[in-house]
C-alpha cells in the first residue's frame, strides 16, 4: 500500500520532472549545421572547427549559417558564401585546384614512387646478391658477441 502511494506520488507529484528540450529549435537544421561546421575553420582561433569554437565570431558565423539553412540554401551555396568572404582558409578540406593538386595527389604519388623504387631495388638486388645472408654461423657470432660482453678480446 505504501508503495502504491509512493508510485502515485512519483507519477503525479513532481511537476518539474520532464524531458529536457533540445537547445536548438530545429534539431534537423542543427544537425546540418554541425555537419557543415566540422569541416569549417574558426578564423580567430588557433586551430579549431567552427563547430567546436566558442569564439564570438564563430558564434556569429554559426548564426549566419543557421539562417542560410533556414533559407534552404544548399551546402555548396553556404560554403561559397563563406569562401567569398574569408577565402579557402575557412575550409578544412582544401578544394582541389592548381595550387593544391600536389597536396591531394602527393600521398599517392609518394606511394607509387615508393612501390616502384621497392620493386626496382629488389629486382636489381636479386641480380647483385650472391646469397650470403646472415648465416647461422654469423648469428652464433652475434649471440656470442652479445653474451661475452666486455670479456671479448
Amino acid at each position: 500500500m505504501k508503495r502504491l502511494i509512493l508510485i502515485a506520488l512519483l507519477l503525479s507529484g513532481p511537476a518539474w520532472a520532464g524531458e529536457a528540450r533540445p537547445l536548438a529549435d530545429d534539431p534537423a537544421a542543427e544537425a546540418r549545421l554541425k555537419h557543415l561546421a566540422v569541416e569549417l575553420r574558426c578564423l580567430v582561433c588557433q586551430n579549431q572547427t567552427l563547430a567546436d569554437s566558442n569564439a564570438p565570431l564563430a558564434e556569429d558565423l554559426r548564426r549566419e549559417v543557421r539562417e542560410m539553412i533556414a533559407k534552404d540554401m544548399s551546402d555548396k551555396e553556404i560554403i561559397d558564401f563563406l569562401v567569398a568572404r574569408y577565402g579557402d582558409f575557412v575550409l578544412y578540406r582544401p578544394p582541389l585546384k592548381a595550387t593544391t593538386t600536389l597536396l591531394w595527389v602527393g600521398p599517392f604519388v609518394l606511394l607509387m614512387i615508393g612501390a616502384t623504387a621497392l620493386i626496382m631495388t629488389l629486382r636489381r638486388r636479386a641480380h647483385q646478391v650472391v646469397d650470403v645472408p646472415v648465416t647461422d654461423e654469423e648469428h652464433r657470432r652475434v649471440e656470442q658477441l652479445l653474451a661475452e660482453g666486455g670479456k671479448r678480446s
Partner: peptide, 11 residues
C-alpha cells in the same frame, strides 16, 4: 605567395 589554405581532418 599562393594563398592561405587550411589542411584539416577531412584531408
Amino acid at each position: 605567395d599562393l594563398g592561405k589554405i587550411s589542411v584539416g581532418p577531412p584531408y
